[in-house]
Nucleic acid binder design. Structure first.
Lengths: 221, 221
DNA sequence: ACGCCTCTATGACCCGCATCACAGAAGCAC
DNA sequence: GTGCTTCTGTGATGCGGGTCATAGAGGCGT
């Protein structure tokens, strides 16, 4: 029985029986583009895994601006944090395109953490990585937009490869800036031959140049 | 034998024998004001606990600006993260004033996590809290300075009470802004009677007003 | 006492980027 | 096809806050 979960990195260390158990308790659900999967502050009923589509984790600030903290692609679990500390969801999750999500009850996930130490250990390392990433992100927030955008693109290219299938608006929300500025910076980079841009996607042409931009401030293009 | 560690929240769930064990392996070290305890990227030899003084965790960015992510006061352990995933320190730690730090070897701490499940559970929750806090911080980074400063002050007041013994420069590094701007905003707040300010410290006079500022944008003072 | 240094404070300037306004282009519904 | 919507693109304007310059004030060492 080759269930979807068995192909997911995070669940590799579970025994087949344990995976089977989780699979039995989990439910698939389909979400239309723009639909909210859960909201920040809601009690966390389920740990979710993207099966198809794309899910964005976002924060909505009182000031009205919204910030996308993470883009989840097929195979990636999200919001395991509440499964550890039993607190509410820390972000909103929204289907960025039509998506299918596997929902594992938090309680079942939590049991599994307690039963299987190596699963716990793996999960911990994932969380640690996430903490490090967020900490880094919070510090780069005040760097100039160009650099933030470069970092965002490089980050996304780890998931999508050189062609990143996000609109300029979505990129803007990830880099915490506006659509206009994003477009302006990208057209700059396009003129310099560093990226190519088309409707709904951006491709990185010269990763090295982009990496340079992500670190140092360069005056010349 | 009432060792220092027994009075620390994080180690409450250890057995006296286990605390004794850790205490036996740990070493106290004194750091002068401004002295670096460890640097980002160094292998994490020790989990540290502040015994006296004040330790700042900071990030030094390529752009030259430095950001203080956390202020640790006596009784608080810091940088337990590397003890979980065995990766290098994620930040610099600097003694903000003359300080005494208890250093517990990472390996001993790690052993303890594996031996004592309830200790592990507690640590995890602390760690989850931190992740939530950092995630929140990373999102508020783009709010106007006034709000960031208000949040910073409120955050610090949880540790220090109404009087916060930090210089304007230190506040600035926490709110990710400059000394000048910090002083200007604070003098604003001072005129409005919300805070009082003196050399090396700032006291919150009207916490409620400050909380309002931390959330909404107010035009009138 | 004196010099030195850190901290606080205030004004002038300026630039990055958000905001607003507008418009063409591509896709989709019907 | 026509209309509607989303996405992309560009210019004008304005403001927040960083940067620079300058200076008084309080501490500390000697």
């Amino acid at each position: 029985m080759d269930h979807f979960l068995s192909r997911i990195e995070m669940f590799k260390r579970l025994t087949p029986a344990q995976r089977q158990h989780l699979a039995g308790l989990s439910r698939e659900k389909r979400y239309a583009k723009g639909e909210t999967i859960f909201r920040e502050g809601e009690p966390a009923e389920a740990v979710c895994v993207v099966k198809e589509g794309r899910v964005h984790l976002m924060k909505f600030l009182e000031s009205g601006q919204t910030s996308t903290t993470c883009v989840m692609t097929p195979g990636e679990p999200f919001c395991c944090l509440p499964a550890l500390d039993r607190k509410p969801y820390p972000v909103d999750a929204v289907a960025a395109v039509d998506s299918v999500v596997v929902r594992i009850p938090t309680s079942a996930f939590h049991e599994m953490l307690q039963q299987n130490p190596s699963f716990l250990e793996d999960s911990l390392c994932l969380f640690c990585d996430r903490l490090r990433a967020v900490e880094h992100r919070s510090c780069t927030m005040h760097e100039p937009v160009e650099r933030r955008l470069a970092q965002t693109l490089l980050e996304l290219s780890k998931k999508f490869g050189t062609t990143i299938p996000l609109t300029k608006h979505e990129l803007a929300e990830m880099a915490d800036t506006t659509v206009e500025t994003t477009i302006r910076v990208l057209s700059h980079l396009k003129k310099a031959g560093i990226v190519k841009s088309s409707r709904g996607s951006t491709t990185i042409a010269k990763p090295d140049r982009l990496k340079t931009l992500a670190q140092h401030r360069s005056t010349e293009y």
